[in-house]
Write a protein that binds this DNA or RNA. Structure first.
Lengths: 356, 356
DNA sequence: TTGTAAGCGTTATCAG
DNA sequence: CTGATAACGCTTACAA
């Protein structure tokens, strides 16, 4: 059919080496415990001569192991997710698994992706999602057959491993930090309502205020949907600036939003952090490059990806049974945009000019 | 062996539907031209009942088509490459191909990745590289068997399709733009020497100067290795500031470097673009978010990825023979950091305050 | 220590 | 229009 010259088969290798296919198979799979070294040698040479590469597909069919895991990922084009993809691929490779990449944003795409991975007979799946509220039906069904690990998948239960991070505490820590720096009116730009992560951060914001004995003021909360564009974010910032008793600090819904907030402030002649502290969320690669460098609540996406693939490969090898739930902490990365560095420097030089 | 309950097979479906496996196979593959609709219907129902999913691995073995392409990518964690990965996955999926992801930075990893993909019997490979000078030996060997397309792979020949972009003209266009804005002393931060892309940009810089009748001044060129860290970039910027007749514009080796350059300038009280114009390369997502928003030479990585996967799937379907070479143009994205916007506004209001 | 042969789940080639 | 049946390339009891 296909006129392309065929690859060498195990049979040809066997013939050339003057042994049986079994022996070749044994050599190739390191079942060489009780085997004459000379035989092994001959086989290896024969394989080398023919440029033989075993067919993984034939092998998979025979031993029912595809040596492949699926990676389905929403928003594949988001820079942050890359780190996760990167470690997942690496850890998988180290465990001798290949990674089949699948994008899926909508529920429809999700279930199609899962069908597809099932047909490919992947041995397990890592699911990198946005935190949209979404039902896990397809996932639960899949997890009934093969190990599944989700990252950043809202919801709970379902009988599979989940890795998430603690948005609530991440956000409240940021609030407490700003409070400790003297801020009493802390604005919050909240993300899209359809994401559980957004809601949790909002809760974290409120929790943080409560922790500090500050009152929750609706005027200090505006919308800045990080899935929208810069114009939207600018509006959010301006809304916060327009309140009569303007905040002295702004918690942005992510780093990109924070960048636009800083820009908006600076264009209006406000200095960051002197006139207004700004804190982001994500710790994108550009956060330290902004001027001033951005204080931010780090999304542990890399760690989450790593944990996820480790959970998966562990389960593949050892077959745990109880589904595991991992909640990572979000770390506050203090840089210059919140004024803490300056405050510290001031303290050092006994200068009392702390932000009030 | 594996105690897991087995998936339904085509045979079970056939039995349940009261037909032969051939018929089931025909239904599933839409070879339904001359077939009693009732038969088709029965088969479909039987499959549905059993929750049948055909095994791609068995199918692959039988028809010698894995329906999979390999994507090997260097610097998987670089935000820019995301866009490429994203379109590649999408286009592949639309063409009913799956994507097997493989990281490979070193030549060693490269050849290991190629072996692996060969064993997986991928039908083609897209190769997303850095522009390091590197020999194509392994690639040429692979391309002898299956279609290969490289993106950003320096070198030429090899009998496979290559997609690149024109660094020289991208850079010279930036120089000409700055010249048109009145700049006569244009500094250049060059990237790592081991990358062909860096060299080409340097050539482009020189070409641009020549185009404008400007003389090449070694003092106006400093190093800022974009694979290094912010400290390195800051040094680069400072080197340029230290020259007696300081430049009025700086071409940075990429957007991250440009961000640090702007930051360095601003920290020294220099205004961008008034006191110094800055231009980057890449057009990273954060470029428009910087203050001022960054004028930059856009890397057409998304377009390159798209072109690459299209070339690949075309070749897979139709089997062209002559290797194709695609060179994309780099577009200058004019924003605020070069002063052009301001100049335009000034012109509009008949204000003669153009940068000199 | 090595060989024989029966699968693995499809597709594809022919007959009917 | 549909059904046997032989590949596909490898693994793996089981035999020798």
């Amino acid at each position: 059919v296909d006129p392309r010259r065929r690859r060498a088969t195990i049979e040809q290798v066997a013939k050339l080496a003057g042994v049986s296919t079994t022996t070749v198979s044994n050599v190739l799979n390191d079942r060489t415990d009780a085997m004459r070294p000379s035989t092994r040698q001959r086989v290896l040479e024969a394989a080398e001569m023919l440029g033989y590469h075993p067919s993984q597909v034939a092998r998979s069919l025979a031993n029912r192991q595809s040596a492949t895991v699926g990676l389905v990922i929403a928003e594949i084009a988001t820079p942050l997710f890359f780190n996760a993809v990167s470690v997942i691929e690496r850890v998988a490779r180290e465990g001798n698994y290949n990674v089949l990449l699948c994008h899926a944003s909508t529920p429809d795409e999700e279930s199609r992706a899962l069908d597809l991975l099932q047909e490919k007979e992947v041995e397990g799946v890592v699911f990198l999602s946005t935190s949209d509220y979404r039902d896990d039906e397809a996932l639960v069904r899949l997890a009934d057959g093969i190990p599944v690990v989700t990252v950043n998948r809202s919801g709970s239960g379902g009988g599979f491993d989940r890795v998430t991070w603690d948005n609530v505490h991440g956000m409240s820590a940021a609030v407490r930090h700003l409070h400790a720096l003297g801020h009493r009116r802390i604005g919050f730009l909240r993300g899209p309502a359809e994401r559980q992560g957004s809601d949790e951060r909002w809760q974290g914001y409120q929790l943080g205020l409560a922790d500090c004995g500050l009152e929750y003021t609706p005027e200090l909360v505006a919308m800045a949907d990080y899935t929208a564009g810069p114009e939207d974010w600018r509006h959010g910032a301006e809304a916060l600036l327009a309140v009569p008793l303007r905040p002295t600090a702004i918690l942005a819904s992510d780093d990109s939003v924070a960048a636009v907030v800083m820009k908006t402030l600076q264009e209006r002649g406000l200095r960051v952090p002197d006139d207004m502290a700004v804190v982001g969320v994500d710790d994108q690669p550009f956060a330290p490059l902004l001027n001033p460098s951005l204080t931010t609540v780090k999304l542990p996406i890399l760690e989450a990806g790593q944990k996820a693939i480790e959970l998966l490969t562990d389960r593949l090898r050892e077959g745990r049974t109880a589904p595991e739930r991992v909640v990572l902490t979000m770390e506050l990365i203090v840089r210059d945009s919140c004024g803490a560095m300056r405050a510290a420097a001031a303290l050092d030089s006994a200068d009392p000019a702390l932000p009030v």
